[in-house]
Structure formats: C-alpha cells, structure tokens
Amino acid sequence: MNDGKTAWRNIRIFASLVLIGAVMAPIFLSDASWPVTARDYLMAQGQAESGAVNLVSAIYLGYRAFDTLGETIVLLIAVTGTLSLLARVESLVSPGPEDTSSPNAKGFSLSLEKRVSHALRTNLLEEVTGKVGPIVLLFGFYVMLYGHLSPGGGFQGGVIIASGIVFLALGNPYEDKSVLVRPAILGGMENIAFLLFILSAMSGVFLEEGFFGNPLAVSGTPEGFIILMNCIIGMKVGSSLAFMCIVMMGGANHD
C-alpha cells in the first residue's frame, strides 16, 4: 500500500518534470541572436547621461533606480520578517529525540554562556577575524565609493561591509563589543538609510527631473548623485545583512 503510494508520487513528480522541461527547453536552448540596441545606446550615451564610467552602475542607479529601490525594500522586508520570526520561540510539541539541545546547534553563537561548549569557534578564528575585520571594512568602503568608476558599487560594497562587521562581532571574545555590532544600532542605521534613500529619490521632483531623476543632471557633475546613492545603498545593505547575520548568531540576546 505504502509502496504503491510512493510509486504514484514519484510518477507524478517525474511527469511534471517532463512537462516543465518541455516548456523550459525552447527558452534555455534558444540561440536567437542577442539584441544590441540597448548596449549600443549605452556605449554611446550612457556615460554622458549618468556620469558613471561603469555602465552597470549607470543602469541600476540611474536608468533603472526604481528597481534598485524595490530590491532594497525586499531586503528591508526580509530583515524585518526574519527578525520577527527568530525572536519568537513557542513550541507546539514537546521536544522530540531530534530536538535542538545538542551542543553543535550553537555553532558560531555570539552569546557568552553558549560559547563554552562549542568546538567551531576556536581562538584561531577569533584572532584572525578580529584582525582582518577592519581591513575588510576598509575594502568595503573602497568598493562602495568607487562603484561609478570600477567594478563594484553599493550592493557589492555593502555586502563586504557586512562581512567586515560580522568579522568584528566574531573576533571579539569579550562582551565589550564595538558599537558597530550592536543590533539596535544596526537596525537604526538600516531604517535611516531607507529614509535617506526615499528622500534622495524624491529630491529630483523639486528640480523638475521627476522621481528618481538626477538632481545634478545639469550641474556638470552628474556622478555626484551616483556616488551619493552608492553610499546610501552601501549603508543600507551593509547594516541589513550584518544585522541579520548577528541576530541569526544569537547576538540579539544581549539587547
């Protein structure tokens, strides 16, 4: 009986894979020639219009900045949702044999009392991350600030900054952590960055450029706006991701 059920399940799954594969195959395997109009236009005009040498930056902070706003919003929602879910512990069933209380479950935990039992966070790890942390932070700022000239930008820089902050959090064996790794500070930075993003996106309205228009378009230094947006996004992404990582490692228990 049970075998029959499993077989029937497998047959249905296999059949749906075949069906989906049949719809997907023409798209994946197509070799229609790639369109060049947008690329050619951007090569000719992109730098002049947006001020960014890096055309990818020009698109996601200029031409399609609204998509970027959407993606930071998604990030914001993910952080808020993750936090509200992780902060809640209520159990429906009594803990079974496969429950959490094994010491390994605490892996990289940041809280002191849990730290005695785990083998994953060695002194070596603490020493190295503590030393490397500031350097990673510096590199993150470089990637963020030079996003309009070289590969990189707010997102990439922000992610590096986030890893720098996580390194700082991991690298400190005591409780006197730097301000930067406190969840409350990171959460506040995230909210402020979001507000700043919205305000700078609205700034174009007052200069007749419209929402997401470049308010510096006529000033001769249009790249200024790209740099500003890169910084705000870097701050937003950096604080969001670091916030999420630190809370997932159990850092929130201390606030």
């Binding site: 109009t37 947008a38 236009y41 951007l42 698109i59 200029g62 900045a65 609204f66 419209g210």
Partner: peptide
C-alpha cells in the same frame, strides 16, 4: 505616460 526619472526610453522604466 512617462519614464521614471525622465531617462532614455529604451532603457529606463
């Protein structure tokens, strides 16, 4: 109708 931020039509939103 319009393009968000008055950017070029083929690339902007």
């Amino acid at each position: 109708e319009g393009v968000i931020g008055s950017w070029h039509e083929g690339i902007g939103i």
